[in-house]
Design a protein around this nucleic acid. Structure first.
Lengths: 194, 194
DNA sequence: CAACTCGGTGAGTGTGTACTCAGTAAATGG
DNA sequence: CCATTTACTGAGTACACACTCACCGAGTTG
């Protein structure tokens, strides 16, 4: 890479980093491209040299973040088949980037179809891990014969609900931290054999 | 009421009705006041004679709709203490206005604080009914000793999740209809004694 | 019926925002 | 060392939207 390419790469990263910070604070929908440019310390027009429009910036940003998250979760989850620890790991990982996921959950229903599908697809990969673990648990007679997809929607729906309405649930500090035990206990109760 | 007052009242109702229809279709956030005026068959400026700004129109609209819903649910729920039937009634009532509630759930996290608080307050009244019924069930040894608020968040969170992402769950027809049994079964499973 | 009130009109205003483009200067390449 | 390429600049453009206001005409009032 020559000087120019390095500089270009550097600018691109500045944009994405700035966008992520603002996304966490105010959400992407309520953030002007000019604000992102300002935070990145570049001219407004420069942003559009790197991304043809706002949407493609958002898509790239979310792709990067979500794939990081996916990689992490895979590493932590793949080796364990114990649902309880899997859930624990999953919640911990969300907690680390709670601001980001809270914004995501809040704006998810308002995103364009393509973007929403991408996000839900990532979620479905994680669901699949849980699905397998629960299935194995049922076969080994450790869990009750629940409707697995429905059960998982209860889990993911609730987590999403907490995240999207975070500000209504906690003043400061994390929602996930606050309701961590409750989520795990209630979910394990659903799986429990009678 | 003289002719003028009747006419004024009539126009006000036309605005609210038009706003509700558009709200269901496109959501209030994505609807311009000019579109509401057009749908109501009045001039754009007239809207602002009846409401000082867009927000106050939205607040009045939601107040009307949610209080109608509250009244209905109270009538159906108050007389029964059986959680299963209560839930059934609740879901039926949502189903009747699913388009409305779907829009509401989708946009809820984006609303201004005041409005969101109002909506969540309504929800909390309904929660209270469920809370009492479950409490009674536990005392009568019919249900397990669950964490009632946490359990109810699982319920309301999941319903909210289905409604807000309705278009991702069903092509046409109702989400609530589709997942009706699953919601009830899973929730009753949480309450079940081991 | 004349004077006045008032609900309604719709072109106009101000603002916020996504995106453009002519110009600049530094890097590159022959 | 000159010609060309290219990342970047930021004032400018087009558009959408909430809200205003001078004007109109039907309704009310004395």
């Amino acid at each position: 890479m020559n000087k120019r390419q390095i500089q270009k790469q550097f600018t691109r990263e500045k944009i994405i980093n700035a966008a992520k910070q603002i996304f966490i604070k105010r959400g992407i929908i309520n953030t002007a491209t000019s604000q992102i440019a300002e935070a990145a310390g570049i001219a407004h027009g420069t942003l559009f040299l790197h991304f043809p429009n706002k949407d493609s910036l958002v898509i790239e940003l979310l792709d990067i973040e979500l794939s990081k998250f996916s990689d992490n979760i895979k590493q932590l989850i793949v080796e364990t088949t114990d649902v309880n620890t899997m859930l624990e790991q999953y919640l911990n990982l969300i907690q680390e980037e709670e601001g980001f996921f809270s914004s995501l959950a809040r704006e998810l229903p308002s995103y364009k179809d393509e973007l929403r599908r991408k996000i839900l697809f990532r979620e479905s990969l994680i669901r699949e891990h849980f699905h397998q673990a629960i299935k194995k648990g049922i076969e080994q007679n450790a869990y009750a014969q629940v409707d697995i997809p429905g059960t998982l929607t209860f889990l993911f729906g609730t987590i999403n609900y907490y995240l999207s309405l975070k500000t209504s649930f906690v003043q400061d500090g994390g929602v996930i931290e606050k309701f961590h035990d409750q989520i795990i206990n209630t979910f394990m109760k659903i799986l429990k054999k009678n």
